[in-house]
Nucleic acid binder design. Sequence first.
DNA 1: TTGTACGCGTTATCAT
DNA 2: ATGATAACGCGTACAA
Lengths: 358, 358
Amino acid sequence: MTGRDATAGAATILDVARLAGVSRTTVSRVLNEPERVTAATLDRVNDAAARLNYHPSAAARTLRIGRTGTIALIVGDIAQPFHGALAQVIAAAAEARGMTVALHDLAHSQGRLVRVLEKLPSQGIDAAIIATADPIDSPEAQSAIAALVRQGIPVLTTMGTSGVEGAHVADSGHLDSAARATAELIDSGARSVALLVGRADGTHADKLRLGYERALRRVGAPAIEIDGGYDFELSRQAVTALLRERPAVDALVVGTLPMALGALRAAEDLGIPVPRALALIACEEVPLAAQVRPAVSTVCIDVGANGAQIMRVLDAALTGDAPTGDPATPVAVYRETFVGPAHPKHSAAASESTGRSV
Amino acid sequence: MTGRDATAGAATILDVARLAGVSRTTVSRVLNEPERVTAATLDRVNDAAARLNYHPSAAARTLRIGRTGTIALIVGDIAQPFHGALAQVIAAAAEARGMTVALHDLAHSQGRLVRVLEKLPSQGIDAAIIATADPIDSPEAQSAIAALVRQGIPVLTTMGTSGVEGAHVADSGHLDSAARATAELIDSGARSVALLVGRADGTHADKLRLGYERALRRVGAPAIEIDGGYDFELSRQAVTALLRERPAVDALVVGTLPMALGALRAAEDLGIPVPRALALIACEEVPLAAQVRPAVSTVCIDVGANGAQIMRVLDAALTGDAPTGDPATPVAVYRETFVGPAHPKHSAAASESTGRSV
DNA sequence: TTGTACGCGTTATCAT
DNA sequence: ATGATAACGCGTACAA
């Protein structure tokens, strides 16, 4: 209302001090250690600050104390539903900690990852979270990450990424999810379970493969893996080819929802009924899974739990403490592409419109 | 490799200057005005910088020059496919300009909007983009925006938002899109076209309504509007109720894709065939529209074009020039929920798997 | 409880 | 073409 800005530019701490009739130090204390100041002066200072529309300068504060309150969030593809959901959780958690999120989208480009990483040190961030399913272990990326760590900026990887020197890692449970998905399909009678990953050389795929093969080994079944490039159309083509070449395949474990949709389209075009002749479980739980037809069954750790785990690891990295983590176990949601274990067939009657979770 | 960090902390411009045997000024020039320095010294300085792994401090630079190179992107719900796509475009455009994006997610909360806006001034940003379909014209929000503008921080609204004092606005074409969608439905024989918005009191809804009613007026048809709360389940319920109460409704214009999925589920549950007895057009074009069954027909301006328009307005706001805008016209993509104008029925044979655009 | 004085790393001004 | 110096706004010993 009474926005009485000084003659030029924004109000500084000195302006507030003058108007309140105190020194800069006192104003600073009011902001940072209010308990160490008299109630009377506190009011006067707050009043003056409000009247001048004073906002402390983040730059000056950072320059002085060395922290920025900003964390870089590097995502593989923010347009993918899972990444959006994760970004939402992380943004909320950051806000709760009084921090802000600098978003960097890679759009699946590795070159971009390196460029982003190299610019990060001069950008003023307290930590970096890398959330991509694409491979990040190129020599350039590795050394860029190492450089960050050397400068005291903790780097955190997730989504199955691992093996990066010096980086903290938040397990997002893909290994367990794939193992359980595979096991459930086998237990319910599937003879030949294939795995559809996004990029065979990515660490996300590594995790899925490990879980998938572990479950397979239990029954001595052969592994069949195809690549859908994290893309609807590519997945559709890959699954079409797979189902033509190996008609025996009657179950599919899929990395992401868009790829699951591609797989389902392929089955539909081939006239293969789902889930009767082909069951499918995606390792990614987002609202969309329940909104499409057929509704996609999933085995996955909750996005919220995933984000919480990430933030726990981040907090630990920032404070130096040990990560107080309990990595959360995958939860299965039975919808239409896999109706659940071979138990007597309940009709779907859960909280969600289409699907019951376990 | 030879990361010879000084005794403590990161290398500063002074360290580089010493190692290169020049003054701070020269180092600064090498970074900002390379043409004003000898090739020889330029090499020496660059060499020293590389050897010390030097990265200029953003905070110090900002403190000095007053700009941060950061733009705040405030989105209504980053988990929604459209917001994700828009964020991707804007992040890429920002990177191309050497700027970074600070992401703030509202999760549809108005209180959050105000809190975010009020913290923005002390966060060090050059401009703010507000991309939400929810209402932003509460008195608190208005005054927070006004405060930003008063401090010289341009605020840009989009997605149909308007009427905010002092804010720049990038038209995202929802009015034209809704008008064209409605017109096409009518032209192809629809008798009763209803409008499904996200929040009746939002400015997004305002724009859609305006376009919808304009097209309706041409033929003197009555307006029917319902609210789906930007949510699958709420949309499903709303459309179920609508179709029960008014069986004459044979066409739907829908604000967002998740709501369109809810509407389609309602029709399916009611046994109403799409598009024969109920045609549907969504005013939001994202890859997902082509990936679901039935594939959703859309009329919308391209997300890329939308983002480009936003960045044009932003550039203009930052430089003080006039926005060089040509707001892009909506493009229609005919898929399965609306097969197109009543012309002879082509079989779908376009670049996309399911859908042909015009 | 409050004030003084210094430095964080950078760029702009002025001189050389 | 290069260098010395001041200033950006803030936090924090230290002194009062």
